[in-house]
Design a binder for these strands. Structure first.
Lengths: 167, 167
DNA sequence: GCGGAATAGATGAGTCTTCAACTACTGTTC
DNA sequence: GAACAGTAGTTGAAGACTCATCTATTCCGC
């Protein structure tokens, strides 16, 4: 006897706690989404890391910095932009600093704050990595999808973002 | 001057390497998908971990084992099912063994192999965690989507899986 | 049935993430 | 302007993941 605990472990309806279990169709949709998301994120990260030595997490930090005026940003703002905790970002910036790609600068407006500044070396590293990343996204994502599917993907993402909060 | 390196850093067309940069619509679709995926996975993992002490990664291992005859599975097969590397699974099973939720057993058919076996305590832990996980998936995913969006999500996931390999 | 290639899994070092302090500064209230 | 609460960011320890390496076993060709 197997027990698929994502569906009801007993007869539906006999469940005292009233958990709203997934039906077979929801189950399949969820699994397909979950597996494809995990595989895609993993694949992109792996290919980028192998080709350039830059993980996807680091890449997002460099991109965020490169898109701002002066290529610098407050640590907290950068953390929010990268969906990262403060702590995680702080560690990551330390490691990027060791590589000479980012440096820290005390924030002039607020003595508590720090600015992360993208260096020229950091920008060069990003320029080298960008084609690899974009090619990965194209190959593994957009090349596989029809325009309708791309539209659906965007709609889906934006709907979920409204609920999860852009934070 | 900002530089969005996901689009062409220079004029499109002046790009010597011929990188197929993303246009504005693709960019938005990609960002929406990426952010929503990261936020959703993070949210589900966090809520599950806080409420039950079981991370999503561990949860998937327990679910996979619970679904098999005899609640046991070869390590490699389990790794594949959980989209995990052999090494990662080996470490994870060791930690689950310390909790008394899984035990290892030499595979009778193949002296090289090991079976991971779900214990009764492990199954009980899973039964306790399942409602929390399912409720999370419902609240943060299905409750937010129309039936059409759910269908699109499934279609999208399955399309990407065909390319990325169910592995 | 012997020898080499391939497979299954474990292990340890290095890296990354999380969590809970902790320091330092700002803003607010009296 | 002193006291206190709140905010910004860092730090260190513990847990988790990756990669390369290692051992044990099986498979295959002869």
């Amino acid at each position: 006897m197997t027990a698929d605990v994502s569906r009801a472990p007993r007869d539906p309806g006999s469940d005292a706690e009233g958990t709203r279990w997934l039906d077979a169709g929801e189950q399949q949709a969820w699994r397909a989404w979950l597996y494809s998301a995990q595989l895609l994120l993993d694949r992109l990260d792996r290919e980028l890391t192998h080709a350039t030595g830059i993980s996807h997490a680091y890449y997002e930090i460099l991109v965020a910095l490169s898109e701002t005026e002066g290529r610098r940003m407050r640590m907290s703002e950068l953390a929010d932009r990268c969906l990262s905790s403060r702590s995680r970002l702080s560690h990551a910036v330390s490691r990027l600093e060791e590589r000479g790609w980012v440096r820290r600068q005390v924030c002039p407006d607020d003595g508590r704050g720090q600015l992360a500044v993208l260096t020229d070396d950091g920008f060069a590293a990003l320029e080298a990595a960008a084609p690899v990343h974009v090619e990965g996204v194209r190959t593994h994502l957009f090349d596989q999808l029809s325009p309708q599917q791309v539209a659906a993907m965007r709609d889906l993402g934006e709907t979920l973002l409204r609920h999860l909060g852009t934070r």
